[in-house]
Structures are given as C-alpha cells and as structure tokens.
C-alpha cells in the first residue's frame, strides 16, 4: 500500500434518536470525527451503553445523523440512494436472524440483493462474488446445512460471508465475536484482519475484545465516558494511558496484560525457575494471595524447581524436611497448610 486512502470519514457527526414529539432529540454522541482507511481494520471500543451501536448504525446509513455528515469516498452516505449505499457498505449486526430454514448458501446469496433484479437472478458476477466469499471464509463444506444446524461460530462466519458477498468497500460489524468461544473469537478476528489486509476491505468493528483488538487491530477508536473520542494505534493508546481512561480498569494491568493481585497473605515466596514454569508458578502463587519476590532478597519460603516445562517438579525446603510436588495444586495446598 503506497498511499493510505481515507474511505469512510465522519465530520462533526452527532448520533442519537430524534423524537416525533416536541421533545428535544436524544443526543448520544456528538462531534465524532473519525476516519477509516483503505485496507484497515479498526476497532471501536468503549464501555457498555456509550453509544457504539448507535454510532455504527449511523455510519452504516441505517439511521440518520442528528448533525454532521458521514462521507464515503467523499460522498455523503445519507444522501445516497439506498441502493448505492448497499453496494458499498455491508453490515454484520447483533440482530437475531429468524430464518432457520435457510441454508448457508442461500443466506450468503442474500448478500447479492443490491445487484439483482426483482426475480433475483444471479449472473456471472454475482456467482463469482458468492464463490469468493465462500472460499475466503472456508465455508464450502457446510453450504447445504440449515442455519438452525449451525454452531454460533459457523453462523457468525456465514453472516460475515454474506456481508462479503455484498462486495462493498466497507464492512461494519457490531460485536462479531460476542458469545463465541476463544478459538472462534480468534478465528473471526483473524479472518477480518485477512479481509482488510489482503482483500482491500475497510473494516470497522465495535467490540469488547480488548486483548484481541490490541494484537490484531490497525487502529483503535475509543469512546471515552463523557463523550470524548480518541483514535490511535493500540500500542500508543496503552502507553499514554488513554485505554486505562476509557475502561477505568480495576485490577487489570493493561501494560502487562495481566490481572493484578493484591497479596492477601503476608508470606513472601521466592521461586527458582525459568521460562513457562516460572511464569505459571508465579501466576498460581499470586492468584492464591502469596507475594512472589526475588530470590536475592528476603523471603519466607523458597521453592526450587527441577525437570523441564512439561514435567516440572517443585521442591520446598522448610526447617525439618524437603517436600516434592508434581502439580501446582499440591504445592499450593501444602503452602496453605503451613
């Protein structure tokens, strides 16, 4: 990519709900200025209830802005016809799809609606777009399964394939990994990243997956409590503390990426170990309220380790005896009894 082209831009956008009565419209977010570049995966993040879904719906043209504009290739999204807009922006929403009787192929083919006539005849270009969407999402083995037979992960991939078949430049997704297990969450995020980087899509995701967003997103767009908006690459936002400000982390250290434990027991434990053994021994001890200290300093208990990472043995020297343990569970149980 030689030149990073802006694809979707919002200018002084206010989003919310207008009311038909004489009441003031309800403004949820205002002065939103963001941009989405070509081939970029951006994650929109913020606490629950801050207005992510409303913003996403407005950016996608599903609801009108209260003020400001959304520009797609320099043209106002809300002034385009439904038809033109549908050819350029596709969405994956959190709405339940009440069509269990459709099969995977039929659902993906629905993505071609903006391109077909009233009898929905698929032409060469339509079939190509559908095949490509199926190939990229690796769904070819379940094409004839009904939606009610799919797992949550498969269903979400099918919805993404449908959005892909719509073949717009921009894809907007609202919490695409909600309710999925870790494997599926990673798979979906990697799929979206692949679509952005290798297939030229500009993708905006509203998500709560902080850990995945930090590792996979090209850009984070943060909605801070109070309506402030911050944009940047993930690492910058971690280091300058703006992510902390957004989520007001309690007991989670963003810079280390781990939960913080307050030592409940006044027992200092030193561990002689290396690699993963050290990492997970420390984790187990801290989680159980022990303070892990350096072997060079003062400590109450010293734990030695032998063996390798897959089969470690822990040894604890105390006044009278030496005890060996083959699992951390036994080690912790022993320490708790001391």
């Amino acid at each position: 990519m030689t030149k990073m082209k802006d694809i979707l831009i919002s200018e002084n956008l206010s989003v919310g709900y207008g009311t038909n009565r004489k009441n003031q419209p309800i403004v949820i977010l205002k002065d939103v200025n963001l941009n989405l570049r070509e081939g970029e995966l951006a994650c929109l993040m913020g606490p629950n209830g801050i207005g992510k879904s409303t913003l996403i719906r407005t950016l996608a043209g599903l609801q009108s802005p209260l003020g400001g504009t959304v520009l797609l290739h320099g043209l106002a999204v809300h002034k385009q016809s439904r038809h033109e807009r549908a050819r350029q922006i596709s969405v994956v929403l959190t709405d339940r799809v009440n069509a269990g009787n459709l099969n995977v192929y039929e659902l993906i083919a629905l993505g071609r609606y903006p391109f077909t006539n009233w009898i929905m005849k698929l032409d060469e270009a339509d079939n190509q777009a559908i095949s490509k969407a199926i190939e990229v999402t690796a769904l070819s083995h379940i094409l004839h399964q009904k939606l009610y037979q799919l797992s949550d992960g498969q269903l979400q991939k099918t919805m993404i394939a449908r959005a892909l078949a719509q073949d717009g430049k921009v894809m907007i997704l609202d919490e695409p990994t909600a309710h999925l297990d870790l494997n599926n969450r990673v798979e979906i995020m990697r799929l979206l990243r692949n679509l952005a980087h290798n297939h030229g899509k500009s993708i905006l995701i509203a998500t709560h997956e902080l850990d995945l967003a930090l590792q996979l997103a090209d850009k984070l767009i943060l909605l801070l409590p109070g309506g402030k908006m911050v944009e940047g690459i993930p690492e910058d936002l971690v280091l300058n503390g703006q992510l902390d400000e957004t989520f007001q982390m309690k007991g989670y250290n963003l810079k280390t990426g781990k939960a913080e434990f307050i030592p409940e027991k006044s027992v200092k434990v030193a561990v002689k170990a290396e690699g993963y053994t050290y990492l997970w021994t420390k984790n187990a001890l801290e989680r159980n309220g022990y303070e892990v200290v350096d072997v060079q300093g003062n400590f109450d208990v010293l734990i030695n380790t032998f063996g390798n990472d897959t089969m470690p043995v822990w040894k604890v020297l105390s006044n009278e005896s030496e005890n060996s343990f083959h699992t951390l569970k036994d080690l912790i149980d022993y320490l708790n009894r001391l």
Binding site: R85, S90, D95, Q166
Partner: peptide, 22 residues
C-alpha cells in the same frame, strides 16, 4: 412481486435496510 423484500425481511429489518430494501 414482493418476494425479494420478503426474503430480505427474513434477516430482520436492519439487515433488509442494509441490503437497500425500502
């Protein structure tokens, strides 16, 4: 004549709208 919008409505009104259905 309406079977295309009817099919789109299976996905719910938001999706139907995103497909350009009035």
């Amino acid at each position: 004549v309406m079977f295309k919008p009817l099919n789109a409505l299976l996905l719910g009104e938001n999706y139907a709208q995103s497909l350009g259905i009035n």
